[in-house]
Design a protein around this nucleic acid. Structure first.
Lengths: 232, 232
DNA sequence: TGGGATTTGTTCGTATGTATT
DNA sequence: GAATACATACGAACAAATCCC
C-alpha cells in the first residue's frame, strides 16, 4: 500500500486492524470528521484512507451517504469462502515442497506468535492467523496472488466476526502446524485436503450463529487503535 | 464501481478506456490539474478517479510525485499472465456446460461485436475482447471472481500494449468462437486446453517485441475520451 | 410534509515536497 | 548546489445532499 501518504496510511492501517479484529462491527458508520478528530487530521486524509479500505471491500462507501464497515450478505460470504478455497489451492500448488529453510522458520515463528497471542487471549491473534495465510501466498512468488489473498483474508476476518462467535480459535494453531508439516513434506494431495479441511473448519466454526449486538462509540474503539503497529 | 460519485466515475471510465486502448502509454504522467481542465472539474475529483485506477494497478501513484500510467516490469507481466491462466481456469470450471441459452446468446453477440470492430479497425476492439473474458467470469456466478478477472483483464490490455505490437488481432475472434462452442458442449478438458492455448497465443503474440515510442500530449489524447461510453 | 442538524461533495488557497536549470 | 518552477498534500470554507425530528 505504498501508493498512499504517511498520515492516510496510518489511519488506513488502524481502521483495517480495528475491522479485522472486530472492534468495529460491520455496519458501523465511519464519519469522516469523527475519525479525523481522533487522529488529528482533516477529512481529506481520512477520506483517502476510507477509499482505500473501500477498494478492498472492507468498508462500503455510498455516494452522499458516507462510509460504513462492510456488511457482506450471507451469499457474499459464501462466495468469498468459495473463491478463497480455490485461491488457497493455487497458493499451495506453488509452495508445496518448495519452501526454503528460512521460509519454514518464518512460518514456524508466525505460528509460535499465534500461539502466544491465543494463550494470552489477545485479539491480535486474529491478525496473526490471517497473516499466516498472507505470508504463505507471498512465498508463492506471485505478488498478484499475494495481493488478492491479502484482500480475501481481510474480508474473511470481517465475515467471521459477522456470522461467527467466540473468535478465538477460529483458525486453530494446531491446523496451521500440521499444514506446514505437510507443505514441507511436499505431498500436494495431502496438503490440499488439509487446507480444504482447515478452511472448512474455520468457516463452519463461524457460520453456526449470527451475533449482532454491541454498541460502543467509534470514538472509544478507535482510541485503542490510534497508534497502530505495522501492516499485515 | 458504484462506490464513486458521478463525475469522478466519468473520469475514471474515460481514463480506464484510454489506458486499455493504449491511447495513453505506460509511463505517461497524469497531472491532476491538466486532466481536471479537460473535464472541467477540480483536482479533487480527478484525484479520486486516479486513486481508483491505482487500486486496479492501472496507474501508479507515488506520494508527492503524482500519478502515471502503470508500467509493469516484464516480471510483473509474467506474473500477471501466470495468475490469469489459473483464474481463467477457475472460471471455466464453473461455467463449462452450465451456460443458459440466454448466456450463450449474450456471448455470441459479444463475439459478433468484436468481429465488427476488428473489421472496421476500431480500437474499441480491445475493450470488447477484454469484455468477453469479464462477461464469462460474471457468468460464473461469483462476483468476486468477476471482480478480479476484470482487473486482470484490464491490466493485461495494458501489458499487451507495452510489450506487444499491432494490437488488432491480439485476441483472435476465431478463438473466442471455438472456446464458446466447447463451453456449450461441456467438455472441460478440451475447454481448458483451448483457453490455455488462447491465452498463450495472446501472450506470445504480444511479447515478440517492445515498443516505446509515441509522444503525444495528454491533452489531445483525452479530448477523444472526454465523453466516454458505459463501463466494461 | 417540512425544516433544521448533520454529513458529505467540492473548490481553492497555502504549505510542502520534487524536479530542473 | 542553490534557486526556481511545478505538482501534490492538506485544510478551511462553502454548497449540496441526506437524515431525523
Amino acid at each position: 500500500m505504498e501508493q498512499i501518504g504517511e498520515r492516510a496510511g496510518a489511519i488506513y492501517r488502524a481502521l483495517r486492524l480495528a475491522i479485522m479484529e472486530q472492534a468495529l462491527e460491520p455496519g458501523t458508520k465511519l464519519p469522516e470528521d469523527t475519525i479525523g478528530e481522533q487522529f488529528g487530521v482533516s477529512r481529506t486524509v481520512v477520506r483517502r484512507a476510507l477509499e482505500l479500505l473501500a477498494s478492498e471491500e472492507l468498508v462500503d462507501i455510498r455516494p452522499n451517504r458516507g462510509a460504513a464497515v462492510a456488511k457482506p450478505t450471507p451469499a457474499e460470504a459464501r462466495d468469498l469462502f468459495s473463491v478463497r478455497q480455490d485461491m488457497e489451492r493455487l497458493v499451495v500448488k506453488r509452495v508445496c515442497g518448495q519452501l526454503s529453510p528460512e521460509q519454514v522458520a518464518r512460518l514456524e515463528a508466525q505460528i509460535a506468535a499465534e500461539e502466544r497471542a491465543i494463550y494470552d487471549g489477545r485479539a491480535e491473534y486474529i491478525r496473526l492467523a490471517a497473516e499466516f495465510h498472507v505470508i504463505l501466498a507471498e512465498m508463492s512468488g506471485s505478488a498478484l496472488l499475494a495481493r488478492y489473498m491479502r484482500q480475501i483474508v481481510g474480508r474473511s476476518a470481517l465475515v467471521l466476526g459477522l456470522y461467527g462467535r467466540p473468535q478465538w480459535s477460529n483458525c486453530s494453531v494446531h491446523e496451521h502446524r500440521d499444514l506446514l508439516a505437510a507443505l514441507v513434506e511436499g505431498d500436494l494431495d495431502r496438503v490440499n485436503s488439509m487446507m480444504h479441511a482447515h478452511l472448512d473448519a474455520v468457516q463452519s466454526r463461524a457460520l453456526e450463529t449470527a451475533t449482532g449486538d454491541g454498541e460502543r462509540g467509534i470514538r472509544d474503539i478507535l482510541a485503542a487503535y490510534a497508534q497502530a503497529p505495522a501492516d499485515a
